Amino acid sequence: MTRIFRNLATLALVSTALAACGTADRLAQIGQEPPLSAIQDPTTQIGYQPVQMPMPTPTLAQYSPNSLWQSGRRTFFDDQRAGQIGDLVTVLVSITDTAAIANSTERARNGSQSMGASGAVGSLLNKVLPSGSEASAAIDLSGTGSSSGSGTVNRSETLSTRVSAVVTQVLPNGNLVIEGRQEVRVNFEVRELIVAGVVRPQDIAANNTIPSEKIAEARISYGGRGQITDVQQPRYGQQVLDIVLPF
């Protein structure tokens, strides 16, 4: 128990120190708009990892004499759609999710157990047992348990927007790894949109756009930071208690 309390105290001190640093930064920004992030190379960001996926057996390009066609090419003429590292592609984000789930469970259980002794053993036990007790009914156990639960989920989400993404990697089979980030500041609130995933060059339209449903391993995040988001979050003390308290 002492070790548990010591660990909780350490966690509280660390959380308080981190919160103090964050509080000082926020106090220094009173009356100012939330700063926008600097434009940076996505591959240099903390946590970035190159994508690795199963690839087909590579084939060597073959050229035929007196022919303009190169084996392995998918088209005869090149176009201006994204296809190399650093190219831009516009992602048409369109998400419409609706889910309705209802569950209900009930459970009940009854049990009883009795045990006694008679004869010579019972006579000996009667001498040992407290007055008013009989060895013939030495043990009489019973138990009753019941539980019930119900849950309902009714969710509806709609998101429709556009964001330009950068090709950060070309996989050996020709698929493109893209990542895009967009920040919009309105008054004292910054809205952030992040899109990442793997796309096929064939799915990119002639106007260099691709719908979000054709992005494999899609990672789409839409959120914000600022005064409105700040008041919607519990205070850091409450968040620490929610993590530490077992009840």
Rank of each mutant, 00 (worst) to 15 (best):
N126C: 00
R26Y: 08
M53A: 08
R26T: 14
L11T: 04
G143I: 01
D79C: 09
V231R: 11
V170K: 12
R74Q: 13
I215Y: 06
G119V: 14
A135C: 11
Y63L: 15
S118A: 15
K127M: 14
T43R: 14
A61R: 11
K127P: 01
G31P: 08
Q52V: 15
Q182I: 00
Q232H: 12
L68D: 02
Q182T: 00
N208K: 06
V153Y: 01
L60A: 07
L36K: 09
L11Q: 00
P58Y: 08
N7K: 02
I215Q: 05
S112F: 03
P246R: 01
I243N: 03
R162P: 00
V190A: 04
R73H: 07
T10E: 03
F77M: 09
T10S: 05
R219L: 04
G132I: 10
K127W: 13
R162Y: 07
L176D: 06
N208D: 04
V195Y: 00
A61G: 08
A165S: 14
G22C: 06
M1T: 10
G149K: 00
L241P: 05
G237C: 02
V190Y: 03
A28F: 13
L129N: 04
Q80H: 09
A205K: 14
L245D: 07
V170T: 10
Q62T: 12
Y63K: 13
R81Y: 03
C21G: 13
N7V: 06
S37T: 15
A137R: 11
I220L: 01
S148N: 14
K214M: 10
Y48I: 08
I243C: 00
E33C: 03
D78P: 03
L36R: 13
A218E: 06
P211N: 14
N110Y: 12
Q29F: 09
G22V: 05
A102G: 07
T161V: 12
L60I: 13
N110A: 14
Q202Y: 04
F77T: 12
V198G: 00
P246Q: 08
E192S: 15
S221D: 12
R73Y: 08
L193R: 11
D25E: 06
T16S: 13
L241N: 06
A138E: 00
D242V: 06
G224H: 03
Y48W: 15
I95Y: 11
I95D: 15
Q113D: 05
D203Q: 10
P34C: 12
P35Q: 14
P130M: 05
T168S: 05
D97W: 01
T75K: 13
F247G: 13
G111Q: 12
A218H: 10
V93E: 02
L8C: 15
G197A: 09
V93F: 02
L171S: 07
E157I: 11
T158I: 07
Q52K: 07
I194Q: 04
A138L: 12
D242Y: 10
A12C: 09
N7D: 05
T44M: 08
A138G: 01
A165M: 02
V244L: 14
T158P: 02
A138P: 02
P246Y: 05
A61L: 00
V89G: 07
A82L: 10
P42E: 00
P201R: 15
A206K: 11
I243G: 02
G143V: 07
Q80N: 13
V186R: 12
Q40H: 06
V167T: 04
V184C: 03
S123L: 09
P246E: 05
D230A: 15
N154W: 02
E106Y: 07
G180A: 07
S146M: 08
